[in-house]
């Protein structure tokens, strides 16, 4: 009995640590290509995305594909779709408001379609591997500068055969995520958080200054929605840290650190 109890406790711990659907990632592997959930911002920033052509990279030769980009607004509603054909190893998409239908901040996915002829030709190779689209998002504030890039960091999103958005990301018990980031006086911070799951999530942000803890915001994020938490320069009197509590087992977000002249962006 004790042994069974121990096994159940261990299983519960493992389940709580797993960011993905256990059934779809361990036992019944899905046959769709999955995408990270990327963020764009056009509110004083420009955004570009470097999309990879996975089969071309696997084979080491150019392969024609269709890149599909689905855009979502802050509430998680679809707001744009881009379809483009290319055969190179990577494709660069400049995101603008004509693509997002005027939406300034939100999220997007990247998927790829290959023709039936291509899939048939490489069917043996593709029998037990499938692709994941991670890619690199670049942001800049001025045309004089280059972009600051960060790679995709979490998602597990796919479109099923009925073209419905599905997610392999799962909510678990409460977790506290603390990036290895020192919040510094003299800078402001934006934290861009996208919900890659099909359920609403609650996020509590708090600042830690040595042993004191200050709640700064609590938000409820609908499925596939994006939220921007701002930490203004005036609020930061001395170096401190930030944490957030969610039901995501790995609750990463995108961090913008900036002053009037410079900015930096990275995933947490």
């Amino acid at each position: 009995m004790k042994s069974l109890f121990r096994k159940l406790v261990k299983f519960n711990s493992l389940l709580n640590a797993s960011p993905w659907s256990l059934i779809n990632s361990k036992f019944n592997k899905i046959d769709y290509y999955v995408s990270d959930f990327f963020a764009f911002r056009l509110d004083g920033y420009e955004t570009v995305f470097i999309a990879e052509n996975n089969l071309a990279l696997l084979l080491g030769q150019h392969i024609k594909c269709t890149h599909l980009f689905h855009f979502f607004d802050l509430k998680g509603n679809a707001c744009g779709l881009v379809e483009t054909k290319d055969d190179k190893f990577s494709y660069r998409l400049e995101i603008n408001e004509s693509i997002t239908n005027g939406i300034e901040v939100g999220s997007f996915t990247h998927h790829i379609k290959y023709s039936d002829v291509v899939l048939e030709k490489y069917s043996e190779l593709l029998t037990d591997i499938s692709f994941q689209h991670r890619g690199y998002t670049g942001f800049r504030r001025s045309k004089d500068f280059g972009y600051s890039y960060m790679h995709g960091n979490f998602g597990g999103l796919y479109f099923d055969k009925h073209n419905r958005l599905k997610s392999l990301a799962r909510l678990r018990g409460k977790h506290i995520y603390t990036p290895q980031l020192i919040i510094k006086s003299g800078y402001s911070y934006d934290f861009l958080f996208s919900n890659p799951t099909s359920k609403s999530i609650s996020i509590k942000f708090f600042l830690l200054n040595n042993n004191s803890l200050e709640n700064i915001e609590e938000v409820l994020l609908p499925p596939y929605a994006t939220h921007k938490t701002k930490l203004n320069i005036a609020r930061i009197s001395s170096d401190c840290n930030i944490s957030w509590e969610t039901n995501l087992p790995v609750g990463r977000c995108i961090v913008f650190e900036y002053n009037s002249d410079y900015f930096d962006v990275f995933h947490s």
Binding site: I30, Y33, D128, I129, Q132, R134, F145, S148, Y149, H151
Partner: peptide, 24 residues
Amino acid sequence: NNLGYLSVEHLHPPSELFWNNKFK
């Protein structure tokens, strides 16, 4: 560049291009 621009990022390893059977 010399005008105040600096960007740093690391690349995903090639295994991250795959969902099932990353290492194969």
